[in-house]
């Protein structure tokens, strides 16, 4: 009974590790080497342990650095920022009202403004 469960776990670990290296799109020999190595290290253990071992291996081989651009730099999907501003211009949607208000203000200033008092 125990051996069947062990076989199942072993199969799951093996499949998981192989699937992962396949999804990494590594050259086949390299992927297989890594998979075999990780499984050797952990033996017939759980998928979790095999995957941890594979991750450690990927790190050792420098294959865990994420996606870099063709020059080996961090991938940037946009150019460097060159900031400026865009300020909405005033929209005077009722110019006759504005003109009337301005006229009233001017008139008020002419009549009661400081200049007149002096």
């Amino acid at each position: 009974m125990t051996s069947i469960r062990d076989t199942d776990r072993w199969r799951i670990s093996r499949d998981r590790v192989l699937l992962y290296v396949r999804a990494l799109n590594l050259p086949p020999y390299k992927g297989l080497d890594l998979a075999v190595e990780s499984l050797k290290r952990t033996g017939p253990s759980s998928a979790a342990e095999s995957m941890e071992s594979l991750r450690a291996l990927l790190k050792e081989h420098g294959l865990d650095r994420g996606v870099l651009d063709s020059e080996g730099k961090h991938l940037a999907s946009v150019p460097p920022l060159n900031r400026s501003v865009m300020v909405p211009e005033e929209l005077d949607r009722v110019p006759w009202r504005t003109s009337f208000v301005q006229f009233l203000r001017r008139w008020k200033n002419d009549l009661f403004g400081k200049g007149c008092a002096r």
Binding site: A23, L24, G66, V67, L75, V78
Partner: peptide, 14 residues
Amino acid sequence: APRTHALHIAMQLP
């Protein structure tokens, strides 16, 4: 998917 995952993470980093 490891590559898509890594790509998405890389594009969030900046």
